[in-house]
Amino acid sequence: MAFYRPARWQKPFAFTVLCALLALPGLMEIFDQSYYIGFATRVLIFALAASSLNLVLGFGGMVSLGHAAFFGIGAYVAAICQQGGIVEGLLAFPLAMGVAGLFALLVGALSLRTRGVYFIMITLAFAQMVYYLFISARAWGGDDGLPLSERMQFAGLSLTDDKVLFYVALGLLTAIMLLLGRLADARFGRTIQAIRENETRMEALGYPVFRYRLVCFALGGAIAGLAGALLANLTGLASPALLQWTQSGTLLVMVIIGGVGYLYGGVVGALVLLLLEEFLLGFFAHWHIVLGLLLIGIVLFAPKGVAALFDKHRSQP
């Protein structure tokens, strides 16, 4: 792999897609398909979550199998806030990011002492610990999860309207993608990618490798927390299923389908996977077999994902 460099057409293309998305809720209402506004919001939220994992995995080179923990914690923070009377998203969402980010900092500080399979399994085990903690904590609903009696507000606007929630999710995703794009090109992004390529050399050059990795890991956790808080608003429930390790696996699959280390890899992956799920499930109840075979195919024959198929500027490693 090399440093991330966006294709020339990427910016105008992303801008066009954004404009099209702005018109989506209106169109869906005209065609009486308002169900798909909720579905599109789901895609946006998972795009955000997958992108946060892509930061850790694609740019930081850390194979974390516990990302669902931060995602789920974000959802729980939102639900706890809502029950506690904090219904303003401008307050609750940063709080969700903060809690998830801090927890990621803690997990990272312990896990980043290890390498390779150890790191994968330890992130997994920590996520499992969070999962069991939440399902046995009766104050937070235990197995049932913690419901939000009502969606929150965002800057005074009620998210109960599906369209408002859609636009808020779109706005936040856009902001985060802009941030990640800038970050990838900035000194921090270059350093973290260089560490991914050659850790020993960067260490020898005097870079505080551990600290760079930790910051990257925590930032990824915080963004996942934001996605979780949004998802809790969409579904009205902070469910322990969000914390399950299979959820981590699903996010990982999204990133890999989309393209590891490509800015829009997470977005593309979330879109592809959720679309497949939505439409294949209707035709073939056992569509996971197809998905599994597809994934093995990707691993064996196209390890760089969908985004790489459109990338002509990329130098081959």
Binding site: Q33, S34, Y35, G145, T235, A241
Partner: peptide, 16 residues
């Protein structure tokens, strides 16, 4: 047996 999946399926039946 998951509240989450039940909710998604229900939303689909109601709205779609």
């Amino acid at each position: 047996q998951s509240p989450d999946i039940a909710k998604q399926a229900t939303d689909k039946f109601l709205k779609k």
